[in-house]
Design a protein around this nucleic acid. Structure first.
Lengths: 214, 214
DNA sequence: CCACACTTAAGTCAAGCGACTGATTTAAAT
DNA sequence: ATTTAAATCAGTCGCTTGACTTAAGTGTGG
């Protein structure tokens, strides 16, 4: 058993290098603008088919990148859920939605590429489903949404769905935009991911509590 | 003068066919997943270089598509600006931001592809600038933002910028999401673009008026 | 100690790409 | 009627792509 482990270490190192290189190149140049060959090369692999060997298709590689980060976000969200318990404050639940994502980005070595990567994948018609699957697979996320629904003001169901989508889009694309600004060294409204999260939470809570035109 | 016009009619017809085909293919399969050859073919052109002849690079084609729609949105926004005059109601100005875009989508023959196209272009690192340029070139948009700033509650500058970005992202990606749902024939929270605009305006106003955590 | 499975390297292949070329069609201008 | 130039067509070019094959290296389990 430990026998296999050692051999797998080398393969895992290569897999990791490929994942890191792919995430970076995808975020910087676009998922479809980067070929598997370029990823292999950037990961220091002589074999132009290294991506194919370790992951399969580009879609599989995208899924692997998404999953890797999703696991970390999941861990952070579970911890936060334990803290807020069964709070009835809407803000707490919005925070449970927002904070883990931005905390994860804060923990990553900078510069980060994950947010831009996610935004691209979610926007691409062929890859969209991959990212959606990976997100919905999170038990912590489901628990958050449930807890959130419990303490939310009465809203028509269609408005509820609509605003959920708004919150989702805001988190995703505001993170991507901030990450892009950091990478380009342009000014950002907030000086840290933590502050950016606070601003996001303010906005999303306001969005949820807004009166509904009938 | 009318001499040239007629000859140009044929070219314009071809240009139009290419624009329409490109917009559709880009939205459905992704901008980078579609080659210029495929666009030419889908536009009924025997020449595999038709895109190159009429537009140049793919980026130029993307810009042409964006500009075409931006002009129509501009017209709708100018009309709405005339209606609201110098209102001091925040909601009027948010409507001036939102309504023209969704009205434009409502006026297009369905199914539409423009919103998904825009979302992709804005999210792609290489194309992002194109779309940003085309948007910022709009005088009506600038006037809207100015009128908006005039009647907005006092906010720290960084929060102001931040919430502007949130509103922008919401409009773009909620439209794209609704368009995708319509294309896939899945359920949408709202039954019309007009109602969707109302929901969006509700949310964005709430977002702007939300209290700021200090 | 050796045979083996796993990983990496190196190179091949057909297909598709953008860019380019020269010929042909079309209709306005002379 | 002839000329001219825009527009379209048909085909070629070098290059990159993903997929595939073959060979070499490496530590494990028998």
């Amino acid at each position: 058993m430990a026998a296999r482990a050692v051999r797998h270490e080398r393969a895992d190192a290569t897999r990791g290098a490929i994942l890191a290189a792919a995430e970076r190149l995808f975020a910087e140049r676009g998922v479809y603008a980067v070929s598997n060959r370029q990823v292999s090369e950037a990961a220091g692999q002589g074999n132009n088919a290294a991506v194919g060997y370790h992951f399969g298709t580009k879609a599989d590689l995208v899924r692997a990148i998404a999953r890797q980060h999703a696991e970390q976000v999941e861990r952070l969200r579970l911890r936060l859920l334990a803290e807020i318990g069964d709070s009835t404050d809407v803000r707490d639940w919005v925070a449970a939605l927002v904070r883990p994502v931005l905390e994860h980005l804060a923990e990553l070595p900078s510069p980060t590429w994950y947010a831009r990567f996610c935004a691209q994948v979610m926007t691409d018609p062929a890859l969209h489903e991959i990212m959606a699957d990976e997100s919905l697979a999170s038990p912590a996320l489901r628990r958050t949404v449930e807890g959130f629904n419990r303490c939310l003001p009465e809203l028509p169901i269609e408005v509820h769905i609509e605003r959920g989508a708004m919150a989702r889009n805001l988190i995703l694309h505001m993170c991507a935009e901030r990450e892009r600004a950091l990478a380009e060294n342009t000014t950002t409204p907030r000086s840290s991911w933590h502050d950016a999260a606070t601003g996001l939470i303010d906005g999303i809570v306001g969005l949820w509590l807004a009166p509904v035109t009938r």
